[in-house]
Each structure stands twice: as structure tokens, then as C-alpha cells.
Design a binder for these strands. Structure first.
Lengths: 327, 327
DNA sequence: CTGAAAGCGCTTACAG
DNA sequence: CTGAAAGCGCTTACAG
């Protein structure tokens, strides 16, 4: 029932020019006489003409759009990653929109109706096993970059999580007390293994130092679970050192310790991972990831692939860094 | 240079049928003989055929896609809102992707290249002045729903923020001490006024009770700023009551109080807004918003508009609720 | 149930 | 600098 909207033909007719000319002006082609352009622009405004994006994309073959897929939304982390991505994309007039997989339904949706991914020029996948996720629904020639997961099929950019774990282990091994690890349990088989790698590095380091890990907890990405885990840890031993595989867990742990009157660096030691702003505020020792840079590099690679650069997929691995603060 | 991908014609030819038939099978039309369908499906698989979404959208006129625009990414809040939205959209085979406006560039991008919004069937805008944001770039017949902002042009669904402020005021006025408010300063003129309304309601209530507000702080949506604000507040007066216009601020305030050894409900009182899970963990008294419901209702309205339902724009206003905990 | 054909609204050589 | 026309890859009456 919605009345047909105004098309390029309507504009052409009213402006007394060919549709080609109208097309040129809306695409800012330099090959239009200024006077013609001005006139066409006026008619466009009068008619309230808005080019149909589907038609444009069908004939031009591109959209200047990128899809970004990732598991849960972790506000600050993604804002940083995406800012990095934006900084690369903007230069070429691209932008990205997001498709977070925070529910089962969303997992199946991407896999079943790849349609909306195919409707963009490229795909960035964060912290997910792209190789399994994409399967046969994405054509071979679709430009894809994997972040925080080392793909076998596509270019990847990630941080050396194992080494990050080593750094945390080397730091925490200096202190007395029982050693605990609080890590993330994958909620989907498709999530990447970054957490496992961090833990593996940590284990490696701790063992090299001749220490033992008392217990490893694996929980969901959830404040409350981390809080309750802290409760368990501190009920076992007041004197302890804890590696939280993400700052997101480090906060509630510190918080709980404070509630029961424990003092960081005296009663316990704690090292997080990520270096989110909250670890700065709370003065939590952590492993810093270059998040913005990951996004930026991923964007650059993606753009190159879209532009036709072909090469064997390779991985770019950035180094994490220990930031010692007051825990 | 990328080799032309396989089209519906290729499939038709190889399967020995017309393109119409291929179209019918990929669209799951019931008017295809099972045998034909099976055969075509086989050929599709052999050829690795993937329908071109742009062509589909151009001729069918729809995408079953919704754009969701909102300011910064606040992990949990949006995950809830979007889950509500999903629950409405999924029933009709729709899904939404996100376009957060966390940077200046993104603001101008939506406004300049409305293109990618027009490429979807509908638009959900959260916590933004839609009326100004959309201006002339969105055609009049585009289905739009506004959440957390009362639009003059479109349907809106929101919580009665003023009343929420009243609830907070009625609660906090019971306690002695200087009264402070920590609210959000808009980072863009286009952000909605929910925070202002909460504060207005709070002021109204407090004045009715014959009390006075000592100071109102307006800060960015940032842990550190809230933390530092708490520092200022507590350096003025140890005995105080604080209204944090979002739980996001309530946490660092509580945290700071704890660091300097203050005890909630004894030394100070605190009421947040939103009822995010962290306020539950930290036992912060707060004003609960029905976030999921907002998303769900918005989705239902959007769907109806897409389906052609036309009516005057109206607002649906939900009631917030005081949740008394240990602050 | 199926095929041939028109049409969706653009872009882009091509010829002038 | 500009117009007429082919083409992008589908969907959908229409006729059979």
C-alpha cells in the first residue's frame, strides 16, 4: 500500500536530463557541468529523492559496509576494538555494523541466513572460531579477518595470549599463598580459545617456578559468578594469589576481598587481563592488550582484501604487557 | 578480478529448469514438485550457489532486517534491550544489527549516508533525539520506533523517568545528610533527556519533602569520573545521601566510599537507576526499569508498521519501580 | 507445477 | 559533458 517512492527516472524526467546524468550527480562524478549538477540537485531536493540502496548495490557490486560479529557485548572492550577498526575504515569511506551473538538464536541466524553478511563487502569476526562458524555459507572469495582467534582459513590478528599468561604467572609466582585461577567457560563451542591460552601460559610459568596451582575455576562472563567464586576462594585460604583471565572477573574478586576486610598486596595478590579502564581505577595489576591496534590492523587487512589483494592467510600476533599496580 | 560468482541462471541451466523454478525453491515456495525441488537443490549445492542479496532485495522490496541505533555501548543494558527486541522480531523471521554512535564520526555517518539504514526494513533508535537525528535523510514512510525518548514524529516506548526520579527522591529524603545527585552530561546534543528527567523528578520530590539538594554533578558515562566525583562528595561531607542517575555511576561511588572506610546505610545512602546485575551483586538500592519489555514492545510496534499498519504516533510509557537493598 | 518475460532502480561503458 | 541502452541477479504475475 505504500506509494511507490520517487526514483531516478522521476528525477531525470523532471530535470529534463537522462538517468545517467542523475546517477553521475548523486555519485559525485566530476564529469557533470556544474550548472547541470546544480539543477539536478535542486530537483532531487524538490522531489525528496533518495537513491534505492539495493539497486545501487546490485549494479555497482559494493556496499562499503562491513559486518562485525562477536560473542557477548562487553561494552568497553568492543568500543575500543571498533574504534580501531573505524579508524582504518573511515579513510576509505567504509563503516561497520555489529552483529553480536549473545543468544543461541543469533548463532543459528548467522549460520542459516548468511544473507545479511553477504550483503556487505567484508566480515570481521572477533573471538570466535571463524572456521567453524562460517562453514559453507560464506563464499570463498568473501573478505574475512579473524580477531582474537587464529584461523586456518583467513587472516588473523591477535595478541599472544599464552605469553600474557606467562607474564601473569611470572608476576604472581613471586608471592606466597595458594594460587587460584578464575577463567571463562566457553558458552558456545564456537567461542575462541583465548582464555584457555592465557591459562595455559599461566600454568606453564607457575610450574617453571616450581609452584602449584590449587584450583582453576571456569565461570561465565558474569559479575555475580566471579563474586561468588571469590567467596569460595577466600573461604579456603585467606592468603592467596589469584589470576583472573579477564579484568571483568578481577573487579568482583577485589570487591569481595574488600567486603571481608582483606587488603590487596598484603592479604592477597591479584592480576587481571585486558587493562580495561576499571582496572586502572581500582588499581588492579593486569596484562594489557593493544585492543585498539588489533581493530585497526584488522581493518587495514580487510580493506586490502576487499580491494583485491590476494595472499596466503597469515597471522599477526601482538605482544601483551604486564602493568603492575596495587594488587 | 574476482571471478563472477554463480547466479540463478547458471543453476537453472545446469538443472534444466527455468530461473523462476530455481527462485521458487530457494524461497521455499510450496508450488514446486518435490522431485524438481530436490534436483534443483542438488545442483545448487554442486555449484555452491548463494543468492545475491541485493538482487533479492531489489526485486522483493524487503530485507527482514532492522537497524538499531544507540549512543555508547553499555553492555548489559543493551543486551537486555536487544533480547527483548529479538524476542519480538524472531517470530517473523526478522533480525536486527547494531550501529552504536560512540564517536563523532559515527554521528555524521548516519546522517550523511543514511544509505545503510535505508537498506533495512525498519529502524529502532534508542536514547537519542530521533526527530533531530533523522532529519531529511529518512523517508517519511520508513518504519521507525523510538525507545527512551519521546518522539514527536514516531512511536515511542519509554519508562517514566520523571516518576523514577520521584521514587528515588521519596526514598532518599528519609535520610539525614547532604543530598547530592550524580547524573550524566550529554556528550552530544542528540542524546535523549532521560537523565535530565530523572533528575527533575528527584528534585521535585526532594523539594516537596522540604529538603534541599546540595549539589548536582554532571559527568560522562565513565567509571573514573564517577569515582572522582565520589571523592569530591565525600570530602565535603561524610554524612550524605546520593542519587546516581544510573547504576553505572552508583558502583564506583559505593566503591570509593568503601575504600575510605564508609559504611552504607550508616555513613551514607545511595540509590541508583536501571537495576543492572551489578547493583544486585553490590546490594545497591535502585530504580528498576523494565528494559527487556521496552525492547519487546518496540519490536512489536516496529513489525506492525512494517506490515503496513498506519496510525498516529503514540507513546507507551512503562512504570519504573523502587528496589530497596542495602544502601 | 513450470517457463518466458517483464520489472525492480540503479551504474557504466559506448557513442556522440 | 550527456543520453540511450545494456546489464546487475533476482521475483512475480501471466499463461499454459
Amino acid at each position: 500500500m505504500k506509494k511507490r517512492s520517487v526514483t531516478i527516472k522521476d528525477v531525470a524526467k523532471k530535470a529534463g536530463v537522462g538517468v545517467g546524468t542523475v546517477s553521475r550527480v548523486i555519485n559525485n562524478s566530476p564529469h557533470v557541468k556544474p550548472k547541470t549538477k546544480e539543477h539536478v540537485l535542486k530537483v532531487i531536493k524538490e522531489l525528496g529523492y533518495l537513491p534505492n540502496p539495493h539497486a545501487r548495490r546490485l549494479s555497482s557490486g559494493h556496499t562499503r559496509l562491513i559486518t562485525t560479529i562477536f560473542p557477548q557485548m562487553v561494552g568497553e572492550f568492543h568500543q575500543l576494538l571498533l574504534s580501531g577498526l573505524d579508524s582504518a575504515l573511515e579513510k576509505e569511506g567504509y563503516t561497520s555494523f555489529l552483529y553480536p551473538l549473545y543468544s543461541e538464536n543469533r548463532y543459528s541466524f548467522v549460520q542459516e541466513s548468511s544473507d545479511f553478511v553477504l550483503g556487505t563487502d567484508g566480515l570481521l569476526v572477533d573471538a570466535l572460531n571463524v572456521d567453524k562458524l562460517l562453514s559453507s555459507f560464506i563464499p570463498k572469495n568473501m573478505p574475512v579477518v579473524s580477531v582474537e582467534y587464529e584461523s586456518e582459513t583467513y587472516d588473523s590478528v591477535l595478541v599472544d595470549n599464552f605469553y600474557g599468561g606467562i607474564l601473569a604467572g611470572d608476576y604472581l609466582s613471586n608471592f606466597d599463598g595458594e594460587i587460584y585461577v578464575v577463567s571463562h567457560r566457553k558458552e558456545s563451542k564456537l567461542e575462541s580459545t583465548v582464555f584457555q591460552e592465557r591459562v595455559n601460559g599461566f600454568i606453564e610459568s607457575v610450574e617453571r617456578k616450581g609452584r602449584k596451582i590449587t584450583k582453576i575455576f571456569e565461570i561465565q562472563l558474569d559479575w555475580l559468578q566471579a563474586f561468588n567464586t571469590a567467596k569460595k576462594i577466600f573461604s579456603n585460604s585467606k592468603k592467596c594469589v589469584i589470576f583472573a583471565a579477564t579484568d571483568y572477573f578481577a573487579f568482583p574478586i577485589l570487591e569481595y576481598a574488600r567486603v571481608i576486610g582483606l587488603e590487596p598486596k598484603k592479604d592477597f595478590h591479584l592480576c587481571g587481563f585486558d587493562n580495561l579502564s576499571l582496572s586502572d581505577i581500582l588499581n588492579i595489576t593486569t596484562i594489557k592488550q593493544p585492543i585498539f591496534e588489533m581493530g585497526e590492523i584488522a581493518g587495514q587487512i580487510l580493506l586490502r582484501k576487499i580491494q583485491g589483494y590476494i595472499r596466503k592467510p597469515q597471522s599477526i600476533v601482538l605482544k601483551p604487557e604486564l602493568i603492575v599496580r596495587k594488587t
